[in-house]
Design a binder for these strands. Structure first.
Lengths: 243, 243
DNA sequence: ATTTTATTGTCACACTATGTAACAATAAAA
DNA sequence: TTTTATTGTTACATAGTGTGACAATAAAAT
C-alpha cells in the first residue's frame, strides 16, 4: 500500500482520486471459541461504531478496492470475499454521524466535504482466520476490534442492516467448503466443524446426520487421530479438499 | 413521469440531478411461445445494442430508480424486481461506444460529458408479462425490442456478462412462485409451467416428477378443465396461490 | 358408432437423502 | 478394573426424486 488514509485526509485534494458517491463496506467474519465475530471500527472519542469501509479509486477495479480495504484493516491478502448487495437507501444520506466524527478529530470541513456526501455502499463479506488477522484502526478511529455478532454495539446508519444481510448470505453459502476452510484452522475435528455450523446457523444440528452428510460430501479428508487429553474416545481430524 | 431523457439531454445542466458514476441496468425478462426474452435497446443508427438502463437521482431511493427505469421502458408499474449484482470492472470505462452514440445523435459533447464517465452499474432483473409490456425506446434509441435470449445481438461493454449473471440468478430463484406468477398468464396448464421451467433452466425435466413436485409444493390451486380442441385428454388449469 | 391418436393424470417401484435412536469403541480419570 | 463422556458406526423409519407403466379422455379418423 503506497497510499493510506492519513495522507488522504491530510490533503483534501487527495479525495479527487476517488469516485464520488460510492463507498465500500465490508462485513469481516471471524470465528473463535464457538463465537462468530465481525470487525467493527470505533471512531475517535465519538462512541460511533461502523463497519470497516473505504472508497473506490478512479482507476481501480471494484473488487480490488474491497481487497484493499480488507488488507488495510487486517493485514491479510488473498482473503475470501463475496459481494452480496449494494445499499442505496436515502436513509444513508444522514451526514450527522460523519460530521460528529470530523469534529471530534478536529478536522475542518464544510458542507461539500467528500465524507459528507450521499454514498451508495457496495457491500462485501469476508471470511478470515481469526488468529492470523491483526486488526488495524484507520486515522479516524480509535480501534478496530472483533465483536461477537450476538453482542454488537449500535452501528452507524444502516450498518446493522448490512450485517444482517451478510449473515443471511453466509448462512445460505455455508455448505461451500470455503466457509469452513477460511474460518477454521487447517485441520479440525467433526465436532469443531459442527459447532461452526451451529453458530452460523443459530440452531442445533443432529450429530449423526451431520457426520454422515459431511463424509458423503467428499469435501473432507480424514487424517490421523487427535489427542484431546480428555477421558473419552479421541476424534479424527479432517482437512477440506480443494473444490 | 414529469421528466424524460429528452429534456435532460437538451439541457446539460439537468445531468446535475443525477448521482455521478452510478448507473442502473435492467435485465427485463419476458416469456412467450416457449422462448425466454429480454428487452434490448438499439441506439440510433449506430448498430450498438444495450440493456435498458438509467441513472440515480440525487434524492431518489436506489430501488425506486430501478422501478422508474422499468416504467419508462415498459409502461408497467408494480413489477417484480431483484437486485442481483453491482458491476464495477474497469473494462466498463471504455467510452467509445457512447461517443459513437452521441455522434450519431448529433449531440455536441466534450470529454467531461456525463455519459462519458466511468459508471458503476447496479443491476436488477425484472419479470414482466410479455403481453402487457409496451416497450418504449428512449431518445437516444431507435428501438426497444424483445430478443430471444438464445439469439441476442452483440451487446455493449460488459452487458452480455450482466445478462448471463441475471440468468443464473433467475435459474436459482425459479422455484419461487413469483417467477411463474409474473412470466405466465394468470392461469396455465401443467405443461405450460413445465415448458417455462425447461426454457429457463435449458434442460428437459421429467414430466411425472415435475407434476408431483408442483402439486406437493402447495403453491398451485387446481381450477377447472381447459378445452384445448385437440384430440386427447384435456388438461387442468392452475393458478399460483399467494405466498 | 367405433376405432385411433396423442396427451394428461395417477400409480407403482427403486433409489437416494435425511431424522433418529441405539450401541460399540475408546482415552483418561476415578 | 471400573466409570465417564464423547466419538464412530450401524440400523431403521420417513421423505423426496427418477422412471416406467397404464388408464382416462377429447377429438379426429374410420
Amino acid at each position: 500500500m503506497d497510499d493510506n488514509i492519513e495522507q488522504v485526509t491530510a490533503d483534501h485534494l487527495s479525495w479527487e482520486e476517488f469516485m464520488p458517491g460510492i463507498s465500500i463496506d465490508c462485513v469481516i467474519f471471524g470465528y473463535h471459541r464457538r463465537e462468530l465475530k465481525i470487525l467493527i471500527l470505533e471512531y475517535k472519542k465519538s462512541g460511533i461504531f461502523a463497519l470497516p469501509g473505504g472508497f473506490l479509486r478512479k482507476n481501480e477495479e471494484l473488487n480490488d478496492a474491497a481487497k484493499r480495504v480488507l488488507f488495510e484493516r487486517t493485514g491479510l491478502a488473498d482473503i475470501y470475499l463475496y459481494q452480496f448487495h449494494t445499499f442505496g437507501s436515502l436513509k444513508r444520506s444522514d451526514t450527522r454521524p460523519m460530521q460528529t466524527v470530523l469534529e471530534k478529530n478536529n478536522t475542518p470541513f464544510d458542507d461539500g466535504h467528500f465524507l459528507l456526501q450521499r454514498f451508495i455502499s457496495v457491500s462485501y463479506y469476508a471470511l478470515v482466520d481469526f488468529k492470523q488477522a491483526e486488526p488495524v484502526a484507520d486515522v479516524l478511529s480509535d480501534s478496530c476490534r472483533w465483536y461477537d455478532t450476538d453482542k454488537l454495539p449500535q452501528l452507524m446508519l444502516d450498518h446493522h442492516n448490512i450485517f444482517e444481510k451478510a449473515l443471511k448470505h453466509l448462512q445460505i453459502n455455508i455448505d461451500r467448503s470455503v466457509v469452513g476452510l477460511n474460518l477454521l484452522d487447517d485441520t479440525f475435528t467433526m465436532s469443531e466443524l459442527q459447532n461452526l455450523y451451529e453458530t452460523i446457523l443459530g440452531e442445533k444440528l443432529n450429530r449423526t446426520g451431520f457426520h454422515r452428510k459431511m463424509m458423503l460430501s467428499g469435501r473432507l479428508k480424514r487424517l490421523g487421530k487427535k489427542k484431546t487429553g480428555k477421558p473419552h474416545r479421541s476424534p479424527y481430524v479432517y482437512r477440506f479438499t480443494e473444490d
